[in-house]
């Protein structure tokens, strides 16, 4: 672990060097009707990188677990796996998203390791960037605080006059060669810590209670149907909350043919447990069984998953407080702070 400093005026050259040497993915702006939003995209122009972004529409997991991914391709009876990992630098991941990445790492790795994810993940160098601008629905400072961001290769923090770059792994260290770095002073390191603390203070939303107390009360509320029915009254089952979630990792698998009718593929696509058909099976003769038929049941399932079910496995809740679901829900009923705070203690 080593701390470095790069001056503001040297930063563009560092990025240019990096982009020349490696595939670099980072936050860039996207606009509609003059409204600015952010997405992770491949960088060609260093000036496009927006480390002052508040939150991206989709979390960075899409780099390793894309919305659509071919698991297998076939040509008649010949079956080919679709794993083709690309070495890349994922630059500017916010700490809350890093926590989430570490969770999806663990979930794809456990039991039966899924190389379709882990091979891509291992080929990447991930550089965290401290939050410079807090998004309007963020609550990352008050959820799962016992779980710290890990799994990153470097951590970049904007301070006066430049950035502090903490190289955490050899992969993170290797990026230093592309820029003009000096050793960071104690003062600069302190300034970086202060910047993180200041950003945390600015989170506009707050989850009350501890991870354990919230897990307990959410679980205890399971059978309170009236509560979930009320929460889910305006739910569209549209899956937006799942689809933008950095810790959601469910997927559907479908096969398809090319027009030649001989070649094709088996493709996984992000799936959402909020959508009506998620837990439906056919029983034959037109009969079906849906294990979560009511939208209140599906709404509840998401909160159980986020606040309780996975806590043991992940060491904390499967929610990192990015606020994407709150912002993506047009009915504004998905906000974990609003829902969990309103559930009475068990």
């Amino acid at each position: 672990m080593s701390f470095h400093f790069i001056k503001d005026q040297d930063f563009p050259a560092f990025l240019s060097g990096l982009i020349k040497a490696r595939t670099v993915v980072g936050p860039v702006a996207k606009t509609s009707r003059q409204q600015e939003k952010f997405v992770f995209a491949r960088l060609t122009d260093p000036a496009a990188l927006r480390l002052d972004y508040d939150v991206t529409i989709l979390p960075p997991k899409k780099e390793f677990f894309p919305p659509k991914q071919n698991l297998l391709l076939f040509d008649g009876p010949r079956v080919t796996p679709g794993i083709e990992p690309e070495e890349k630098v994922l630059f500017g991941v916010h700490p809350y998203d890093m926590k989430a990445l570490d969770m999806t790492d663990a979930l794809f790795r456990e039991k039966n390791e899924d190389r379709n994810y882990t091979a891509h993940r291992e080929a990447a160098t991930v550089v965290v960037s401290s939050v410079q601008k807090v998004s309007p629905r963020a609550f990352w400072a008050s959820i799962g605080t016992e779980v710290k961001p890990k799994g990153h290769d470097a951590w970049l923090t904007k301070v006066a006059g430049g950035c502090v770059y903490e190289a955490v792994t050899a992969k993170g260290e290797a990026l230093l060669q592309h820029g003009k770095f000096a050793a960071a002073s104690e003062e600069q390191k302190k300034a970086a810590r202060r910047a993180d603390e200041e950003a945390a203070r600015q989170c506009p939303e707050k989850l009350q209670g501890t991870s354990a107390s919230n897990a307990k009360k959410v679980r205890a509320a399971f059978s309170r149907e009236e509560l979930w029915t009320k929460f889910a009254q305006d739910c569209f089952s549209c899956g937006s909350c799942n689809t933008v979630c950095p810790t959601c990792y469910c997927f559907d698998v479908q096969d398809w043919w090319h027009v030649d009718q001989n070649t094709g593929g088996r493709t996984r696509t992000w799936d959402s447990c909020l959508t009506e058909d998620f837990a439906k099976i056919s029983l034959g003769a037109g009969a079906q069984e849906n294990f979560r038929e009511e939208r209140a049941e599906r709404f509840r399932h998401r909160f159980m998953r986020k606040a309780a079910y996975l806590n043991e496995k992940l060491g904390g809740p499967a929610c990192v407080g990015c606020g994407r679901c709150s912002a993506a829900c047009t009915a504004d009923i998905a906000d974990p702070t609003a829902v969990i705070n309103s559930i009475p203690e068990a």
Partner: peptide
């Protein structure tokens, strides 16, 4: 499933 899913997938 609704169109929201496809909008989100393509950001």
């Amino acid at each position: 499933y609704p169109v929201c899913v496809e909008c989100k997938r393509r950001e």
